[in-house]
Nucleic acid binder design. Structure first.
Length: 415
RNA sequence: GCGGCUGUCGCCUAGUGGUUAAGGCACCAGAUUGUGAUUCUGGGUACCGUGGGUUCAAAUCCCAUCAGCCGCCCCA
């Protein structure tokens, strides 16, 4: 049998219901904050990502789904959405007015990676981008929205890690200092770190080996290498977070994997997610829009892994809002037209009702209603018709009531 | 990209060279045809992930492949 492509899964049933619950909450919160949805193509020119995400990142170097189309163009399934959103606002001239833009998106992303729990080759992200504002306050506005969103899902207790990575020209001297620091103490570090010093010095900072963490005591911190402007930006950001009562941890060791970040970066990890603990991440990207051919424009954004968010919400036993599920069962062939008539009037009133059309014995209908999780069965047979009523069976308790046909629509609201 | 583990009905598992692969849950059929879920009775629904190989004989051993899981790397 042909099966789905490795790392790409079908969503249905309970898990899909959680996806939809979260997507609805997302739309609601975004709209209340004035963010508008944007949908960009899933496929883009490969160079958008190599230029936008950064040609030295792992995402670009080993994780992209890149292929050639019939005209020999190099195309890539988007590994993230910020580069596409930036491309879209430049191409569609959304920045002409100089007014800030607030956009959000929900959609699938693709990265060619080794499979693990919580890591898929097609995964879903929800993201928000705040474009055209340089202030630390705009960052906090965006983060407040993010936390309102998480709180509405019952996940308000997550803790935010923040850092600032400054601008590229400010980072260079920090890299030199960090490399020198580690090299001076090379023997104190583990084998992995000795390798990391060469190919990814920042990664030494979050090594899990405790002796390495000890050896890092007094290591150079990136904040000390930033310009006065970047430092004061970061201070304002922290003060604003504090006065907004958003709990955070300043983490000078935090490293992010995308090249376009400038100044503020942040992320939220959750130990409930196992090895793939990253739930969301984001930051400022003041150079990306000009790097991709637009006018110099400051911007800030974040993205949440929707698959991981769903798995967290499900793990915390946060229950979905449940509505009554009604099955209308005509008893006997003569009642099917009456059942259609009743169902159509209930649908017209906006009620959610399913109709049994198989013509099977009542016993069978009730049995599958029970199995499929219906809460109520409406039984309509000759005897009900003669009395102008319907039998309402409560499948949880087994109790039955008789409702007048004329009262059904209003009584449904109270079950 | 590197290292390791796993793969038996819809789900969970037993079975580690020898008859027709076993059990639980689920499912299906019945217990006076308009009452499910509960009870009772009956039913096995599986080419043992796939393809090769070894053997008189393979779910079991070997190889390959696919998929999943775990660690590294990295990220959501």
């Amino acid at each position: 049998m042909t099966q789905s492509v490795k790392g790409m899964r079908d969503l249905w049933g309970t898990e899909l219901a959680y996806f939809q619950f979260i997507e609805r909450a997302c739309h609601q919160i975004m709209e209340s904050h004035g963010y508008q949805e944007i949908r960009t193509p899933i496929v883009e020119s490969t160079d958008l990502f190599s230029r936008g995400v950064g040609s030295t990142t792992d995402i670009v170097n080993k994780e992209m789904y890149t292929f050639r189309d019939r005209s020999d163009r190099s195309l890539t399934l988007r590994p993230e959405n910020t580069a596409s959103v930036v491309r879209a606002i430049i191409q569609n001239k959304l920045l002409e007015s100089n007014d800030p833009l607030h956009l959000f998106y929900i959609g699938p992303m693709f990265r060619y990676e080794r499979m693990q729990a919580g890591r898929y080759r097609q995964f879903w992200q929800i993201g928000a981008e705040s474009i055209g504002i340089a202030s630390p306050e705009s960052e906090v506005e965006s983060i407040i929205m993010l936390f309102d969103f998480l709180t509405s899902l019952g996940l308000g207790d997550l803790s935010l890690s923040i850092n600032s990575v400054g601008f590229p020209e400010e980072r260079a001297s920090f890299y030199v200092a960090l490399k020198a620091f580690v090299k001076d103490r090379e023997q104190a570090f583990c084998e992995d770190c000795r390798r990391r010093i060469e190919d990814n010095p920042l990664r030494v900072l979050d090594c899990k080996v405790s002796s390495c963490q000890t050896a890092l005591t007094g290591h150079p911190e990136i904040l000390n290498f930033l310009s006065n402007e970047s430092q004061s930006h970061h201070e304002k950001f922290q003060k604003c977070l504090q006065s907004s009562r958003i709990p955070f941890l300043s983490n000078p060791k935090m490293v992010r994997g995308l090249d376009y970040y400038t100044r503020t970066t942040f992320e939220v990890l959750s130990s409930d997610l196992g090895a793939q603990s990253a739930l969301l991440g984001g930051g400022r990207y003041d150079r990306l829009i000009q790097d991709l051919g637009g006018p110099p424009t400051p911007a800030f954004g974040w993205a949440i892994g929707l698959d991981r968010l769903v798995s967290l919400v499900m793990k915390k036993n946060i229950s979905l809002p449940s509505k009554p599920r009604i099955l209308l069962i005509p008893v006997g062939e003569t009642m099917i037209n009456d059942a259609f008539e009743l169902a159509r009037s209930l649908w017209a009133d906006g009620h959610s009702v399913e109709l049994e059309t198989r013509g099977v014995p009542l016993k069978k209908s009730l049995s599958s209603a029970n199995r499929k999780g219906h809460s109520h069965a409406f039984i309509l047979g000759e005897s009900e018709k003669a009395k102008g009523i319907i039998t309402v069976k409560f499948l949880m308790t087994g109790k039955q009531e008789e409702w007048l046909l004329s009262e059904i629509s209003s009584r449904i609201l109270h079950i």
